[in-house]
């Protein structure tokens, strides 16, 4: 059944759906956070995911990563449903996902090099020298100094931790990476470099990026598509231009607020209700 759905989807969009979320409901007790939510992520795109604080962006990401139980719905990654997959397929799926947690979540007892090698050691049968070389490649790719490999996470700055955590997320060259607020806590220059790095990695490695972010710069500069979470569903997804057209007070004030206007250079949405909402 789902097979036919997939082909219909592909015919419609001519793009491969790498992550398909259907009808997902997550509730904590009586508090429903996500209510039959649908979302598609296509191969090779950078999807920016935005939403007000407390709307469930993190909950959705954790539900997709199976760190949270969902009440109903299906989630298919690379066309496979994790719930019905067998043990071997689950491991293969895990190998094709990379996650950059908000605070890095590097293992504090291991050096950066050992952190990056954790998934390699676990899943691959490669000699130490080759793993060291691949680790060095990853460290350079994310823009860290080679000497950072021998350091412990507690010796790194915030920006370096993000980069090291990205290197670990990319350790096995996953098909899709989940980034949870990758540029939060970085200075504007560092954040812009990070955005550029992600776009560059997408181009060279063919990555698909699912990025939860509040950084308007990132949304305007690197995201191909943006999805807005609100009222327990994906309110709208599309390009920046589509966001600016969309008639919802929150979306309007988010993308047409003073901060957004100075970044985007889009004309002031006079007559829109952005002003009214911002001053409230």
């Amino acid at each position: 059944m789902s097979e036919t759905e997939m082909t219909a989807e592909q015919a419609e969009g001519t793009r491969e759906t790498i992550l398909e979320v259907r009808d997902v409901t997550v509730a904590f007790g009586k508090n429903v956070v996500l209510d039959s939510l649908d979302l598609d992520v296509y191969r090779g795109e950078i999807l920016g995911f935005v939403g007000g604080s407390g709307t469930g962006k993190s909950v959705l990401m954790r539900a997709i990563l199976r760190l949270l139980r969902r009440q109903s719905g299906t989630i298919r990654i690379l066309g496979h449903d994790y719930d019905t997959a067998n043990e071997a397929d689950r491991i293969k799926l895990d190998m094709r996902l990379g996650v950059l947690f908000q605070h890095g979540a590097l293992f504090s007892a291991l050096t950066v090099r050992e952190n990056i090698q954790v998934p390699m050691r676990e899943y691959l049968d490669l000699p130490q020298s080759l793993m060291d070389e691949l680790t060095a490649v990853k460290i350079e790719m994310v823009g860290l100094d080679p000497s950072a490999g021998a350091k412990y996470p507690s010796e790194l700055s915030g920006g370096m931790i993000k980069r090291a955590a990205l290197a670990r997320a990319l350790a096995l060259d996953p098909d899709i990476v989940f980034l949870d607020e990758p540029t939060s806590g970085l200075d504007p220059i560092g954040a812009a470099e990070f955005d550029e790095l992600i776009a560059q990695l997408r181009d060279t490695l063919g990555l698909t990026v699912y990025m939860v972010t509040h950084d308007l710069d990132s949304l305007f500069s690197v995201c191909d598509r943006i999805a807005v979470l609100g009222q327990k569903k994906v309110l709208v997804s599309g390009t920046i231009a589509e966001m600016l057209e969309f008639d919802d007070p929150w979306v309007q004030s988010y993308f047409r607020g003073k901060r957004a206007r100075t970044i985007s250079g889009y004309p002031d949405g006079s007559g829109s209700n952005a002003e009214q909402y911002r001053t409230e």
Binding site: D132, A136, I139, E140, M141, G149, T204, L205
Partner: peptide
């Protein structure tokens, strides 16, 4: 050409550079 580009984009490293 995407593969050739990827190969060319990789830095030159040695295993020793990640070890203290």
């Amino acid at each position: 050409h995407t593969w050739v580009e990827l190969i060319e984009a990789l830095p030159d490293v040695t295993a020793a550079s990640v070890r203290k």
